[in-house]
């Protein structure tokens, strides 16, 4: 989620140098020295400097992906009691076909979709509202509040889940006590409760981060426009909603789309919370499904196939996000 959303800051930053300036620079340097021929020495030096990146990139990105592709085409076949040696059988697309027709796998996408429908609107509207409030003329102690809102984001997802796990436990949690004292009932076992209990944690964690992004984008809104709005008789509320929010619409839409991509990878929170929110099964999200296939069922071929299918989906979505993002920029 982190690295993906960081790129959202792009649209709000200064516009890129016009191409002409760069060309002028290259031309200027070109006039000073002889036109460069690719020298052997230079190539070697460049290779040496580039080597660490490529070595690490191949060892930790390309190779594992290729290895997963390889694994996904095979299946461990045992025979009889399964006590003898396992045979690695080439099965082609069988693992992929099985994943796509496995109700546990397909329903995990449904769960993520519902979760996104709850989590994302709440989180984006909340962060936008807070950012606008911080940016308003009446705001006091902006630095403090920016830090305060940001703090939950530095808590790792796993720890956040543990904290909330306790806050969700009856007879231990002050929140549950308060709900019960005011006459409400507390029941985390329903399907809806599962979605809301997870969304609550992620909203708590990620709102502050987006507040910072939106607040930064708001700083780039030209003063003249706001002054003009004031002169035209717009009050602070109208300015915030009709002018400021619209002017950072690009940042908001890109943040939203990146949040979707991040939200799809939900894993640690439901894994921990499933003991309390009992509607969460061990294959509730795509990542949980993959984890279960690989480490509970030891079916690495199947896990690789479902992981790659999931990765392709995320890849397609990220591509769409970038396309839409650049459109929103224009």
């Amino acid at each position: 989620m982190g690295p993906a959303t960081q790129r959202v800051a792009g649209p709000a930053g200064p516009p890129p140098e016009p191409k002409g300036a760069i060309m002028a620079l290259t031309q200027a340097s070109g006039t000073r020295t002889e036109p460069r021929r690719p020298s052997r020495k230079g190539t070697l030096t460049a290779l040496l400097f580039l080597a660490p990146f490529f070595v690490l990139f191949f060892a930790f990105t390309v190779f594992p992906v290729l290895y997963s592709c390889y694994l996904s085409l095979f299946k461990d076949k045992a025979a009889g009691l399964g006590l003898g040696a396992v045979q690695k059988v080439f099965v082609g697309g069988e693992n992929y076909l099985r994943a796509l027709t496995d109700p546990a796998y397909t329903s995990s996408f449904g769960n993520i979709a519902v979760y996104c429908l709850i989590y994302i609107p709440v989180m984006i509207v909340l962060s936008l509202s807070i950012a606008l409030l911080l940016d308003s003329a009446a705001a006091k102690a902006r630095g403090f509040f920016r830090l305060a809102f940001y703090l939950p984001n530095i808590v790792p997802g796993l720890i956040a889940a543990v904290i909330w796990l306790y806050l969700y436990t009856p007879e231990i949690s002050p929140i549950v006590d308060a709900v019960k004292a005011s006459g409400g009932t507390w029941d985390l076992s329903s399907t809806l409760a599962a979605y809301f209990s997870i969304s609550n944690i992620t909203v708590w964690m990620h709102t502050g981060y987006n507040v910072i992004l939106f607040y930064a984008a708001l700083q780039a809104v030209p003063k003249e426009v706001l002054e003009a709005a004031t002169v035209d008789g717009a009050g602070p509320f109208r300015t915030a909603v009709a002018i400021k929010a619209r002017m950072i619409a690009g940042a908001v839409s890109v943040a939203t789309l990146f949040t979707v991509v991040g939200a799809m990878q939900l894993f640690a929170e439901p894994l921990l919370l499933k003991t309390k929110a009992t509607a969460i099964t061990s294959t509730w999200t795509p990542n949980m499904f993959i984890y279960d296939a690989a480490f509970d069922k030891h079916d690495f071929g199947y896990a690789a196939a479902s992981a790659l299918t999931f990765a392709v989906l995320i890849g397609v979505m990220s591509w769409a996000v970038t396309k839409l993002g650049s459109k929103a920029d224009q």
Partner: peptide
Amino acid sequence: ADLKNRGIS
């Protein structure tokens, strides 16, 4: 289903 998938009899 799980054992059959693994090829175990």
